[in-house]
């Protein structure tokens, strides 16, 4: 019970930290990190809720978290490639403005 409680609270706190980062931290890459941290918090809450000390854990949250981890990395990659594209367009635009 205590173990579940520790990790549930930790998951919610991670979610809060991620939300803070998403809103407050100015840099875009760290905003992507923040979304990932929020995701980790949600996963932790889910797994802690399915944890059954001394017995068989609930496999359904485990399966959902597995799916979530893979989707999260796919989303991160999509966000990163969008950021890279935007950054390169910006750089090209700046170059054109500097040397027309």
């Amino acid at each position: 019970m205590t173990q579940d409680l520790i990790y549930s609270v930790c998951g919610i706190a991670l979610f809060g930290i991620g939300l803070y980062g998403l809103i407050i931290v100015p840099h875009i890459l760290q905003k992507i990190l923040a979304v990932n941290i929020m995701g980790v918090g949600v996963f932790m809450l889910l797994v802690a809720a399915g944890h059954n000390p001394g017995g068989v854990s609930d496999p359904v949250p485990h399966a959902m978290v597995l799916t979530g981890i893979v989707v999260a990395v796919a989303g991160t990659a999509l966000a990163l490639s969008l950021v890279c594209r935007i950054g390169e367009l910006q750089r090209d635009g700046a170059d054109e403005e500097a040397a027309p």
């Binding site: 019970m1 579940d4 409680l5 549930s8 609270v9 919610i12 706190a13 979610f15 809060g16 939300l19 803070y20 809103i23 809450l45 809720a49 399915g50 059954n52 017995g55 068989v56 854990s57 609930d58 496999p59 359904v60 949250p61």
Partner: peptide, 23 residues
């Protein structure tokens, strides 16, 4: 954000043990 987090933590602590899962 701090208030939201505190409320969520309070809910988790007060709601007691989770319902038995689907195991």
């Amino acid at each position: 954000i701090a208030a939201l987090t505190a409320v969520l933590i309070a809910i988790v602590i007060l709601s007691g043990p989770a319902a038995p899962g689907l195991q």
